[in-house]
Design a protein around this nucleic acid. Structure first.
Length: 426
RNA sequence: GGAGAGAUGGCCGAGUGGUUGAAGGCGCUGGUCUUGAAAACCAGUGAUGUCCUCGUGGCACCGGGGGUUCGAAUCCCUCUCUCUCCGCCA
């Protein structure tokens, strides 16, 4: 959520900043609501002050045995007026709140304006593998190697689901183990949060109210949903709390499956496990002092890159243009893996700095040691990593002429030393 | 799933309609005493949100929301959560 005071005092600045995202913002209506609200508030509060002082006279009059009925009549009229003003004020405040909640985060100064086409590759690791034969796509490879059973996955879960089988399941788990080991080595704290969350969680993360339709909602009454990313859980860890300065930074990671409806977002070329309703991800999450979030963003980017580099995969790191960053984020970097069969780079990690946007939504603050001042902290998150595009990249980039796939060395300890996955059967 | 109890300030805990933003205790801060510390004693203590005319100012805040009333921490409704007992179950 943006600082409402900032919107009030610098409306042009906000309009210009959101324009970088391609977000056309008209604040005239908001500003008139806001002025109206302030006038109402002043009127209402002075009326309440008068009511409160006069109300206190009642017991005194009664004590003296005097008649209070004239005063009671007067107060009765005031009470009705207060009620009316309260209602108008509440309605207006609700309208203002919904308006402000719907606004996306302001892109960081160094993020360039415009959409996807403005994304800039800032780093490349490795090279596109060259094959002396026609390389297979990951769907064929995973099937022939017995790693993934797409058909039976669909039989169980419907379109958009797959089933890891045998060595495929082990390989998937080896990836997660490898990530976890690295995060633990870096001193990050492991978390296993609930997968079913309340509406409030989605609101704090910034996914609601706008993207309510994108999650799997579980209950008819109330609102419980399956988390679309562990970020949604971890941002709510300290919701409504005030942390002490020396508790920061908090560096966390969590493993959860991610459940997404992805309604209508399948594309013909996104076969196999490129886009599914359920995929595994380890999420890194940070809570920092405002002055340290830029530094932490670099740390998270470096960690995510290191994980992919450890696997030996060719990838590129892109800095996203304003319009391609998700609504809650001020800065986002994506790690994109090379998928030979698609002739495309596909995202496997997204690392972002939300600055104080989510902290404001969730009222997550900290107290300075000096001066005891209470401020909103900064939150950051990054995939470290999502597996559903890693596994395809591994089998495609490391496929051999004989139909086998070489296993990255860092994963071998987690696979009982296995070096290569060979085609099954004949 | 059935029955009951509860949610008050950093913590414990009083408070059932009227100067109660809230007794008392603990904790914390300062002081006296002490070589120092402890103990004891004295004093202070909402590190909350919001508004303005920025003040020994106003409004709001006793789990959330709503209601009754001139006035609600106190009464009513509702939701959420916690606890106890019984039942069921991986």
């Amino acid at each position: 959520m943006l600082d409402i005071n900032r919107i009030r005092t610098n409306p042009d600045e906000i309009v210009a900043a959101l324009k970088k995202r391609g977000y056309a913002l008209d604040l005239t209506e908001f500003l008139s609501w806001d002025n109206e609200r302030k006038a109402l508030l002043l009127e209402n509060e002075s009326l309440k002050a008068e009511r409160n002082t006069k109300s206190k006279l009642i017991p005194e009059l009664k004590k003296k045995g005097e008649d209070a009925s004239a005063l009671l009549d007067e107060l009765k009229i005031m009470a009705d007026k207060v009620k009316e003003l309260d209602e108008r004020q509440d309605a207006l405040e609700q309208k203002i709140k919904l308006f402000v909640q719907a606004l996306p985060n302001i892109p960081a100064d160094d993020v360039i304006a415009g959409g996807k086409e403005g994304n800039a590759v800032v780093k490349t690791f490795g090279e596109k593998p060259v094959f002396a034969y026609e390389p297979k796509n990951h769907v064929d490879l995973c099937t022939s190697l017995g790693l993934i059973d797409y058909e039976r996955g669909v039989k169980m879960g419907g379109n958009g689901y797959w089933l890891y089988t045998g060595v495929g399941a082990q390989l998937e788990w080896a990836l997660l183990n490898y990530f976890m080991a690295e995060h633990l080595k870096d001193g990050y704290t492991m978390m296993l949060p609930p997968h079913i969350l309340t509406y409030e969680c989605g609101l704090t993360a910034g996914q609601f109210p706008k993207f309510e339709e994108d999650v799997f909602r579980l209950t008819e009454e109330g609102f419980h949903f399956l988390l679309p990313t562990a970020e949604t859980a971890l941002i709510n860890l300290y919701r409504g709390e005030i942390l002490e300065e020396d508790e920061l930074p908090k560096k966390l990671f969590a493993y959860t499956p991610c459940y997404r409806r992805e309604a209508g977002s399948y594309r013909a070329n996104e076969r196999g496990m490129i886009r599914g309703h359920q995929f595994n991800k380890i999420e890194m999450f940070g809570y920092t002092l405002p002055e340290h979030s830029a530094e932490m963003l670099q740390e998270l980017i470096a960690k995510a890159c290191r994980l992919v580099e450890g696997l030996g995969l060719h990838y590129q790191l892109s800095k996203l243009a304003a319009g391609d960053c998700s609504a809650s984020m001020a800065t986002t970097y994506d790690i994109e893996l090379w998928l030979p069969s698609m002739n495309e780079y596909k995202e496997c990690s997204s690392v972002s700095n939300a600055m104080d946007y989510q902290a404001r939504r969730g009222n997550i603050r900290f107290r300075r040691k000096e001066g005891k001042k209470i401020e909103f902290l900064h939150t950051l998150n990054g995939s470290g990593l999502a597996t559903s595009r890693l596994l395809p990249a591994i089998v495609e980039q490391f496929q051999q002429g004989d139909g086998s796939v070489l296993i990255p060395e860092v994963l071998r300890p987690f696979l009982g030393g296995m070096e290569r996955i060979k085609p099954q059967g004949r």
